[in-house]
Nucleic acid binder design. Structure first.
Lengths: 344, 344
DNA sequence: CTTTTAGATGATAGCGCTGTCATTTGTCAA
DNA sequence: TTGACAAATGACAGCGCTATCATCTAAAAG
C-alpha cells in the first residue's frame, strides 16, 4: 500500500516548495516552464490528486455545484440532469445532487447542508422555496439559478417557462381542434402542475365550458398506471368527456392504453394531450400530442449562466424564458374525423 | 449579513470549550445532560452548521457516499437511486452521484476524484471496472458495493443478479410458449445486455434454433423510438420472426407500438418479452411480459451493506443475488391462440 | 480521610492545502 | 556597473474542525 501522496511529497520529489506545486496546479502561468514541466511530470508519476477537503478549507471555495431537484425518478428531471452533466463535462466542477422529494422542508435542510459547503453554484427547482430557503440562497456567496419555472422576483437567475401559459396553450389547442368537454388529469400536483391547471381553468372559464367534475387530480406520483386509473375515474364522473389534458406524458400514455382497452377511438371519440413531450409520444399508436419543454436545454443553460457568473461576466438576461411548443399529433386531431391526414 | 457561525462561536456563547461542542454534535453521550442541552439550544439558536471540509480534513472521514452509475437518464438507474435515497433518508450521509456515461475511462477518472474524498462508502455499477479502477477500489479505505450484477471475485461486496441467467429464462419462456423464431433486440450493449444476449444465444443454440439474423443490436441508448426502429430492421431481415426478447422495456413498448401500426397481432402472431418490468408494462394493451429485477431493493440493500460494514458488523454474504422473475403477461401468451384467458 | 476510578471537560496539535506576504533571481535602462 | 522593477519562488500562518492526551471533579472503595 502506497501511502497517500500529498502536495509536499510532490514538492520534495521535484525539489521545490509546496506552494510552487500548488501554483502549477491552479495558476500554471505564474510558474516557469522548466519547473512546471518537472512538477507536472511528478504529479503524474506519483498519481497525486489534491485533497478536496483541504483545498476547500484553505481557499474557502469548492468546485461543487449543488443541484436540488424534487425527484430522481421523474423523467423530466433526468432530462434536465442530462443537460447539466453534458454541459459540465470537461469542466473542473463536481455535481452534488440533492433530492428534496417535493418537500419544502427537506429542501430547506439540504440547502443548509449545501450552502455550508461553499459551493461554486446552486441550482434549485421552481420558484416556491420557503422564506428560509430563499434567505439562505440570497446569503449564499455563490450564483443561484432557479430552473423549470420563471416568475417575477428571481433570487438571482432563472431559466424555465411559464407553466400557466403552457396550460392555457394546451387547453386552447384541444378546444380549437373541436373538443368541448375537456378534462384535466393531474398527478403529484406540485406547484408547476397547479399552474398548468390554472391555465387550463382560465381558458375553460373564458369559454364558458369550465366544469369541476372534469378535473381529476391526485397527490400520487405520475405513472402510466395512474393514467389508466385517473381516466377511469374521470369517465365514471363524466362519461361525456371528449378529451383530456394530461400532466404529464406518463398519464397520457396510460390514458391511451386505457382507451385501447375500452375501445374508445383516439382521436375520433377522445382527444389526448400530454405534457413534456417525452420521446415515446411521437411513436405511440396513435401518436400523442404533447407540450414540448426544453428540459435538456434548461439544464445546459443553467450551467452556462452559473459559469458566466462565476467568471464575472455580466448577465444580460437573468430570467430566461425557454418557452414551450404544442406538438400536435394524431391524438388531438379532432372529434369524429374518420379520414386520417396523418400517416401515424 | 451575519458572519459565518463557527464551532468556537457556539462554544463562546455557551461558555464551554470548542471540543465540548464538537462532542455534543458527534458523541452526545460523553457530555453531561446539562451542558448538552445548553449547547444544543445554542446550536439551534445560532443556526450553526458544521463545515464539512474542516470536518473531513480533521477526521480523515466524510459522510459522503459515492455512487457511480453509467446514466442518470435511464429508468433502471433511477429506480436504483430511489432505493438508495429511500434507505439513506434520515441517516447522516450525503449522496454524491457520478455519471460514468458507460465509459470505463470516465469511471476511472471519477473514482480518482471520489476516493480522494475519503468517502464513507462507494457504490459502483457492474463488475467490469478497469484494472486501475479495481485497484483504486481495493485500496479505498471504505466499503465498496458493486451493484446490478453479480460475479465471482467481488472487490468487496456485491448485490445484483445474473443477467445471463435472466436472458436464458426469458428466452426459455418464449420458447415454452410456443414461439420458435425468437429475435433479440439490444440497445446500448453494455456488459449486462451482452450477458443477457449470451443467455439468449445459449438457449437458442441448445434448441438448435439459433440464427444470427434474428439478433439486432445497436450501441444507441434504449428508447421507445428505437424499439420501433429495431423491430422494423428485424422484420426486414427476418420476416418470419415470431417473437422478440427486448432489452430493455423501452424497446418492448416501441415494438408493441410498431406492431399496432403494422397490424401485427400480439401475442397471436408475435410474442414480446421485455426486460426490467417497468411499471407501464402491466397496463400496456396488450399487457407486456417482462423480467422483473428488484432495482429499488438493490439500491436499498447496497446501502444496508455499506452501513453494516461501516458499523463493523460482519457481512455473512458479501455477494447477494437478488434474482429475477419472469412476469408472464398477455404479450407472450403464445402463437395463434385466439381465445383470451387474460382479461387485459 | 485518603486513594482509586469513572465521568466530564479542556488544551494542544495538527489534517493538507492556499492566501499573503517576503525574498531571491533575472532583465533592462541609465 | 548600478538601481529599478518584474518574474519566480518560498516562508509562514491559518482555514474550522477533531484526535489525543491531560486535567479536574465527584463519587466509590479502602
Amino acid at each position: 500500500m502506497d501511502k497517500k501522496i500529498r502536495l509536499v511529497d510532490v514538492a520534495e520529489a521535484v525539489g521545490v516548495s509546496a506552494v510552487t506545486v500548488s501554483r502549477v496546479l491552479r495558476k500554471p502561468e505564474l510558474v516557469s516552464e522548466a519547473v512546471r514541466l518537472r512538477v507536472t511530470e511528478a504529479v503524474a508519476r506519483l498519481g497525486y490528486v489534491p485533497d478536496p477537503a483541504a483545498r476547500a478549507l484553505a481557499s474557502a471555495r469548492t468546485d461543487v455545484l449543488g443541484i436540488l431537484i424534487p425527484s430522481v425518478t421523474n423523467n423530466v428531471f433526468s432530462a434536465v440532469l442530462r443537460g447539466i452533466y453534458d454541459r459540465v463535462e470537461g469542466l473542473p466542477l463536481n455535481i452534488q445532487l440533492g433530492n428534496t422529494r417535493y418537500s419544502v422542508l427537506e429542501e430547506e435542510r439540504l440547502l443548509g447542508v449545501f450552502t455550508r459547503q461553499r459551493p461554486a453554484g446552486l441550482i434549485v427547482t421552481g420558484v416556491d422555496q420557503s422564506a428560509r430557503s430563499k434567505a439562505l440562497l440570497r446569503q449564499a456567496a455563490c450564483p443561484v439559478v432557479q430552473i423549470m419555472e420563471i416568475g417575477d422576483d428571481p433570487i438571482d437567475m432563472m431559466v424555465g417557462l411559464s407553466h400557466r401559459d403552457a396550460g392555457r396553450a394546451a387547453t386552447r389547442h384541444l378546444r380549437d381542434r373541436g373538443y368541448r368537454r375537456i378534462g384535466f388529469l393531474g398527478a403529484r400536483m406540485d406547484p408547476r402542475t397547479q399552474r398548468r391547471l390554472e391555465g387550463y381553468a382560465e381558458v375553460m372559464k373564458d369559454d364558458g365550458i369550465f366544469e369541476e367534475r372534469l378535473i381529476v387530480t391526485t397527490r400520487r406520483a405520475s405513472t402510466v398506471t395512474l393514467g389508466c386509473e385517473l381516466l377511469s375515474e374521470l369517465l365514471s364522473r363524466a362519461p361525456d368527456v371528449d378529451a383530456v389534458f394530461c400532466n404529464n406524458d406518463d398519464l397520457a400514455v396510460g390514458v391511451l392504453f386505457e382507451c385501447q382497452r375500452r375501445r374508445i377511438s383516439v382521436p375520433e371519440d377522445f382527444g389526448i394531450c400530454g405534457f413534456n413531450d417525452l420521446e415515446m409520444m411521437a411513436v405511440a399508436h396513435p401518436s400523442l400530442t404533447s407540450v414540448r419543454t426544453n428540459r435538456t436545454e434548461m439544464g445546459r443553460r443553467a450551467i452556462e449562466m452559473l459559469i458566466a457568473r462565476v467568471a464575472g461576466e455580466p448577465i444580460d438576461t437573468p430570467v430566461v424564458d425557454l418557452g414551450f411548443e404544442i406538438v400536435a399529433r394524431r391524438s388531438s386531431l379532432g372529434p369524429s374525423r374518420r379520414e386520417a391526414p396523418f400517416s401515424t
